[in-house]
Design a protein around this nucleic acid. Sequence first.
RNA 1: GGGAGCAUAGCUCAGCCGGUUCAGAGCAUCUGCCUUACAAGCAGAGGGUCACAGGUUCGAAUCCUGUUGCUCCCA
Length: 873
Amino acid sequence: MTEINSKYDPSNVEDKWYAWWMEKGFFHSEPDNREPYCIVIPPPNVTGVLHMGHMLNNSIQDIFVRRARMLGKNACWVPGTDHASIATEAKVVTKLKEQGIDKSALTREEFLGHAWEWKTKHGGIILDQLKKLGASCDWERTCFTMDDSLYESVIDVFIDLYKKGLIYRGVRMVNWDPKALTAVSDEEVIYKEVNSKLYYVRYKVEGETEEWITIATTRPETILGDTAICVHPEDERYQSLRGKKILVPLLNRAIPVIFDEYVDREFGTGALKVTPAHDINDYNLGLKHKLEVIDTFNPNGTMSEAAQLFIGEDRFVVRRKISEELKNCGHIVKIEEYTNKIGYSERTDEVIEPRISVQWFMKMKDMAKPALDLVENDTILFHPAKYKNMYRHWMANVTDWCISRQLWWGQRIPAYYLPDGEFVVAKSKEEAFKQVSSKFSIDDLKQDEDVLDTWFSSWLWPISVFDGIRNPGNRDINYYYPTNDLITAPEIIFFWVARMIMAGMEYRKEIPFRNVYFTGIVRDKLGRKMSKSLGNSPEPLDLISKNGADAVRVGMLLCSPAGNDLLYDDALIEQGRNFCNKIWNAMRLIKGWPVDPNLAQSEVNKVSLTWFDTAFNAALSNIYSLYDDYRLSEALMATYKLVWDDFCSWFLEMVKPAYQQPIDNYTYNLVIGYFEKILQVLHPFMPFITEEIWHIIGERKEEESIMLTRQPEPTVFNQKIIEKFSYACDVIMAIRNARKEKNIPQKESIKLFIRKNNNETTDRTYDELIMKLCNISELGYVEKKVDGCLSFVIGSTEFFIPLTEILDVAEELKKLEEELAYTTGFLGKVLQKLSNESFVKNAPANVVDSERKKLNDAEARIRVLGEQISRLL
RNA sequence: GGGAGCAUAGCUCAGCCGGUUCAGAGCAUCUGCCUUACAAGCAGAGGGUCACAGGUUCGAAUCCUGUUGCUCCCA
């Protein structure tokens, strides 16, 4: 055969196989008689680019899908993208601005034209990037949340839920993003701790010349919207204020003093200014005490006409100006440094303003109950289960979902307004018009300007990708739904996972997935979240092109138990790369052996094969049970050790023929057979290199791919063989150690004599193997000690290696005495336990027995060690 | 402020119903080796009062209580 490079080069391999898999259509799935296995991708933002989190998440999905396929299931991984209304619209607005176009100058249709153009141009880049990773998605099924069928599904669901009375329109305090000019959900608000100031402002009591009340506030600019002062009903300091009015500084508007237990007497001065339009708690107080609501802000965060002062100026500019003004007028008592938490918009990083607004809401309580139960009673399993706690807490305290967004990019709310303020909900203007009294014409109908929250389409994803909303009886939805596993991040457990469960129960009467596997966050070495601004994230595609997708997949997986964060380190990828190289070189070794069809199988090869078959099956059953427990990282590590330790370090060394000597045909074929099985076990983790090597080590037909083969089935294995072999390993390692200590090179052959003590049975199964691996020319059993030898003790068996040079007696003595001291100490502990009557009485018999065995073994060993010592003295 | 989780080797973690699978794995470190698959390798070695303090028990990394420190979620 031709020379194969000792370093595995993925660049020549990966693109070739991916293209071939695609060409053969191996990823495509159609319903058939097999058991289905389905995963729907958590759709990434359509204009997003691949980041490290995607790499981890999608590697895991691919591992599950490829494994299911190799278990003979009809595996289908549905890819797609999310229209991500806020993020995408923000990007389009920015891009238009760069071209000198202002969104407000465009009509809705014109803007959407630009948005679709942008989507066509940049959309789906991320899906192509996933191909580099080896993702075996069924690309023929690629979906987008704004595809016609998915769009229509969303609208149908909205109308349906409206008819069921689950969707309503209401005036509510919402989280307002003054930059994006939209309401955002609670989940999209990020609270950050900031240094701010606490202003102590005194308000004059009406009708009194020198009576003041001082309040503390972090937001002096909202003073203009104050409609009450609130104090605790039992606060003695303020009892004199009952029935009095207070004058708002600068405006001299009179507002009432209200008494409510809500107020924390310890905070500030114990007096609270109430601004119902600009704080959720104040809003609730306002509802309770029937206060006037004065909205002093415009939607973009500037002061409105209602503020009377500073009209049109930004709220933060006004904060500075008004505090100056208050100071000049003698209203500021003091200003303290203060840290508090401020909500920021996840998408625009703008400070969120609580704002009174008319929005669409969805009632959550009734839907949350069954969705909670399904997780509580393990109908849906969370991996790891600790996230059940988090889920329970949220579901028990669920609030109604604000589903409208003041954006254009998304599914437009199918509500049509009439000139009289009434509205109807219908699929189209024509449908709406049918429900309208005859006094209006169709042109009087005006559709709602808002679109639906992006999650209002994603929550249908497992159903809508199979068109199961519009066509509930279709073949695909009946076959693939419910899907099997969902792989996602814990931070979207509420706005996505929980809601998909609700939608599933509402529209399929069935759970959407059986298992949820939570991945952690990919962080840098220092534990910081990876982010563009920190610049601490490697470029995923660079990593792949430099190291290969297999190496990247392995590196990331090795270190990311479900639900735990992954601290990314380049060393991880190196480990993956080294592993590829190891497998590659195993292939080079095996392929390099000359095969002699006439050669009889040696005894060594025979016992080696027996052992490896056992070790392989033991590893396999371990790996499979780790898969079953969704402990992927550990399954990979077990596979890694199977390959590196059992297969390469032990087995191949055991059957390896001497230099330029041939191997017998029988053994060779079995070695190749095990190698193939190992590649199959590896394939879900490392799809490319396994396909490559699988084709190199065997004759394959045109349509044959490792990805279409079955993973090996574990068979029963004999634990005894493993134990016996492990003893042989101890001997081998002790000999290696002795060689190292005495500087005996591996090339120089040695003799070994064994003396059994304490009635130990002699098992010669691995004698020849030990001779081969340790380069032993003669191995014999003796009754008496052998002189002039280096010796060591395993259990109570003595081993002697004749030395050419003179033994360093002092050194040997020291070693033996240390060993003796340790064993004596150990014996003492065992004796102590066994002489404890309550232990012997209460502990289970097998525990006591094992202590007795320890006692015997230790005594025998002490005897032998003592003999050796006295011999040297 | 409310809730949850975590604390085991230098790092990342595994250790289920308390007892030979109980102190483990991988990486990193150190020491030898260019041994004819692989120096991206081979062969060895060292590293932990299992956060702290109590308690339960014949026996605790494991169960209970408290303390400290960290993380996340919600307000």
